[in-house]
Amino acid sequence: MLTLTVNGQQKQVDVENDTPLLWVIREHLQMTGTKFGCGAGLCGACTVHLDGTAVRSCQTAARDAVGKKITTIEGLTVGGKPHPLQDAWIAEQVAQCGYCQSGQIMQAASLLATNRDPTKAEIVAHMDGNLCRCMTYGRIQKAIIRAAADIRAKSGA
């Protein structure tokens, strides 16, 4: 039995220590916004935050998440208020099939947490590990730039 902190809530899960965090989140906790794409850290669909850092949950053993704050796409909306990236994703009509987009948004959120005015090159470098099979890359870039501007405007920076 492991105790995990997911989106601010403590969860007891009966899993092996080496169970990938992905399956703990998706199947044991039934929070299905986090997606399984490759199981090998090659596509980014399973991206979540561990203490604010974007990680591939398919490559993270459950025991390594104990004592850390796990944030999933479901936890990005705080108090019913969407993250600026989620608003920007709608404004730019980014998603096609949508399957990779939770991971894309989580990956982008970790960029904007430390860089509120990323250049296009910084965005590409940060996002290149996240595969979008529908190839919505252009709109992902636009949405990140829009969200960053939104965050700066709201903070008066």
Binding site: T32, G33, I73, P82, Q86, I90, Q101
Partner: peptide
């Protein structure tokens, strides 16, 4: 007009076959 399926694809609520429980 905004695509009806997009909002659910930004917050993890869109249901795919693999999400069946």
């Amino acid at each position: 007009v905004p695509q009806l399926d997009i909002p659910s694809k930004t917050n993890g609520t869109a249901k795919f076959g693999i999400d069946t429980m």
